[in-house]
Write a protein that binds this DNA or RNA. Structure first.
Lengths: 109, 109
DNA sequence: ATTATTAGTTAGCCTAACGAACTATGTCAA
DNA sequence: TTGACATAGTTCGTTAGGCTAACTAATAAT
């Protein structure tokens, strides 16, 4: 799965269904871009659109079971790659990287 | 300037003229991709192709003066953005990030 | 001298970003 | 209540950058 799809899907999985606009804002892309991303994910069976109950203009996007599984697989692969990369690092070095990651995480909030 | 062009240009500026193949290898893209990147940079006046003296198949790519200036400007902007991001960080935190960056640098070598 | 290899280019496809223009729905004010 | 405006999404066309396959031109090898 491509990074943009993986990222959008993980938002859906970890923070629940979202409208296209919300997803676009969270992924820092424009509405049309997210609309097409969602269409692509829908065609791959990773997500599905559902109409909004009260507002006919709005559509909510949900992750599917297949989407959740695909996300898990992707995370597996990335973890493996990360483990491979960190194979040569000492425990102290890993600790420094982890700490730096936490700091950056907070800074970009 | 886009990230791929910025990156390729910085290779030319900091490590000297390169063939398309060498550039492609260093930027981890395929030859045709780099060929097009170089064409684009050439049209922007950031780089120029020159024929190889001995081997008629080879072309060497050089950064132009304009390319060097553009790279400098780009670096300025990134530094400013980085300073902005790190504005809220303590000296210790910056030190941790710097150390982590050095470690990762070594790991990806 | 032919054949094979190598360097680069070109063409065609895909994904993903954008802005502009459009549709459909909802909201508000006269 | 209806006409005007606002909002949510979609569609269209463009650009950029990645890839593979197919090509040309030059060099190397048999």
């Amino acid at each position: 799965m491509s990074p943009p799809r993986m990222s959008a899907l993980s938002v859906l999985v970890f923070t629940g269904p979202k409208t296209i606009s919300e997803l676009a804002a969270m992924e820092r892309v424009k509405l049309p871009t997210m609309s097409r991303l969602v269409s692509a994910m829908e065609e791959e069976g990773l997500a599905r659109r559902e109409p909004h109950a009260r507002d006919g203009r709005v559509v909510t996007v949900h992750a599917t079971a297949k989407g959740r599984r695909a996300l898990d697989r992707g995370r597996e692969l990335r973890l493996r790659a990360l483990a491979e990369l960190l194979g040569d690092a000492s425990a102290q070095e890993v600790a420094v990287i982890r700490e730096a990651a936490a700091i950056v995480d907070r800074l970009v909030l």
